[in-house]
Amino acid sequence: MGLDFTVIPQYLDIILWGSVWTILITLGAAAVSFIGGMFLAVIALYAPLFVRLPFRAFAFLFMGTPLLLQLFLIYFGLVQVGIDVPAIMAGIIGLGLHFAVYNSELFQTGILAVDKGQIEAARTLGLSRMQALRKVVVPQAIRDVIPPIGNNMIALLKDSALVSVIGVSELTLSAQRAIGSTYRPFEFYVLVAVIYYIINIFMEAAQRRVERRVQASR
């Protein structure tokens, strides 16, 4: 059958739109995973036992099962309980939740690693536990865990391809659309691989910049 890359230009607009959606989905899920991760970490560390235990079980379950399986659960599960969300929402929630659990582990380590003296100094000034957490501990914890969190964001980008399986219109699905008309899977999948790679490079560069800026105020 051979290769014929000349079919690409015709479908470039579909592919590029797919890239835009992939970037948006990645950013959306990244935000969910960051905020969710911080939220879960605070719960895992400071909530009463009857709240902590179910969260621990949930985290354990999510870290021990494949993302694709979780996406199926969330997408079909939400429909089951009557919440009819568009696939893209289920995709962002699924991706976000999956990585929120991993991020929460990182945040917990980061929070615990903040020197005890910091909390003492804040409490001594009269700050409440919550205030000390918000203004003194958490900012420092975040700074410390930026590298591994950044790595998780980059992993998120690559895993975003899985939402195509539940029908979300992004880069991978756009390739499949083009393939549907041209019957040239190799060309289009290689093309999207290149696009993912490029986005990956930009994200790594952004991560390095953030790491450098954080270093300045250490």
């Binding site: 020197d115 409490r123 001594t124 105020s217």
Partner: peptide
């Protein structure tokens, strides 16, 4: 918690290892 936070505003403490907020 409320009580101790208020009281602590009236007591200043200086630590051996400073405990300044690095961020």
């Amino acid at each position: 918690e409320k009580h101790i936070n208020l009281v602590r505003q009236e007591i200043g403490m200086v630590f051996q290892h400073f405990n300044l907020f690095p961020h």
